[in-house]
C-alpha cells in the first residue's frame, strides 16, 4: 500500500535528490511515450478506439484553449496537453496503489513554478515594459501587494493540488485499514478519480487563465 513517507533513493549531502515521486514520474514518462507512439503509429481515416480517445482529449484541450485563451494562441496547446496528461495519469496512480507523485510538494511546486514562469515570461513578451509598469498600477505604493498576489498564484496552485492529493491518499489509507472490502471502491471513485480529474482541470484552467490575463 502506498506509504505516507516518500521513499528516498539518492541524496546529496543528506538532502534527498531522487525520491519515489521522481521514479514514478519517470515511469509516467515511459507510459506516456508508449501511449503516444501507439496512437500515432497507424493513424486511420476512421479511427480505432485508442486513436479516438486521444483525438477526443486533443479536441478537449483545443476547445479549452480556444474558449479561454483565443484560437490564435494554439501554440500553448502542446504544453497544456502535456500538463493535462501528466496530471491525469499522476493523480490516478492512486488507483493502482502507487503513491501519487502529485502528493509530493516538490512535484506540485515544480509544476506551479513552471506555470509562474510561463505567466511572467509571456506577460513580459506581450507587453514588454508595460508589464512591469502594471505592477505599479494603480498606485506605486501597491507594488509590494501586486508582487505578493503574483506569488499567491503558484503557492495556491501547488498547495491546492498537493493538499487534495495528500488528503485523498490519507483518507484512502484509513479506509483501507478500517473497512478493507467494499467501501474503498466508493472512496477510490470519489477521492481518487473525481478529485483527481477536477484538480487536473483546475490546474490547467488556472494556468491558461493567468497566462491570458498576463498577456492582455
Amino acid at each position: 500500500m502506498a506509504d505516507i513517507i516518500i521513499p528516498v533513493y539518492v541524496t546529496i549531502n543528506g538532502t534527498p535528490f531522487i525520491t519515489g515521486s521522481v521514479v514514478v514520474t519517470w515511469g509516467i514518462i515511459v507510459f506516456l511515450l508508449v501511449l503516444s507512439i501507439l496512437t500515432t503509429r497507424n493513424m486511420k481515416m476512421v479511427p480505432g478506439v485508442l486513436q479516438l480517445f486521444m483525438e477526443l482529449i486533443l479536441a478537449g484541450v483545443h476547445w479549452m484553449v480556444d474558449s479561454t485563451m483565443g484560437s490564435h494562441r494554439r501554440s500553448f496547446a502542446p504544453y497544456l496537453l502535456a500538463l493535462a496528461l501528466y496530471l491525469l495519469v499522476a493523480n490516478l496512480t492512486g488507483l493502482v496503489a502507487i503513491r501519487q507523485p502529485t502528493a509530493d510538494l516538490n512535484t506540485t511546486f515544480a509544476l506551479a513554478g513552471i506555470t509562474f514562469f510561463l505567466v511572467q515570461v509571456n506577460g513580459f513578451r506581450a507587453k514588454k515594459l508595460g508589464y512591469i509598469k502594471s505592477f505599479f498600477q494603480p498606485i506605486p505604493f501597491m507594488a509590494p501587494m501586486n508582487f505578493i498576489s503574483e506569488l499567491a498564484l503558484p503557492i495556491s496552485l501547488s498547495f491546492r493540488l498537493f493538499g487534495n492529493m495528500l488528503g485523498s491518499m490519507i483518507i484512502m489509507l484509513m479506509l483501507y485499514s478500517f473497512m478493507p472490502i467494499l467501501v474503498p471502491i466508493i472512496g477510490h471513485g470519489f477521492f481518487d478519480v473525481f478529485a483527481g480529474v477536477i484538480q487536473m482541470f483546475i490546474f490547467v484552467m488556472l494556468t491558461m487563465t493567468f497566462i491570458t490575463l498576463a498577456m492582455d
Binding site: 546529496i12 521522481v22 512535484t107 495528500l166
Partner: peptide, 13 residues
C-alpha cells in the same frame, strides 16, 4: 524523506 518537504527532487520534477 518526509511527508511535506522541499528538496532537490523539485529540480528533477
Amino acid at each position: 524523506g518526509g511527508v511535506i518537504t522541499i528538496d532537490y527532487s523539485l529540480l528533477w520534477q
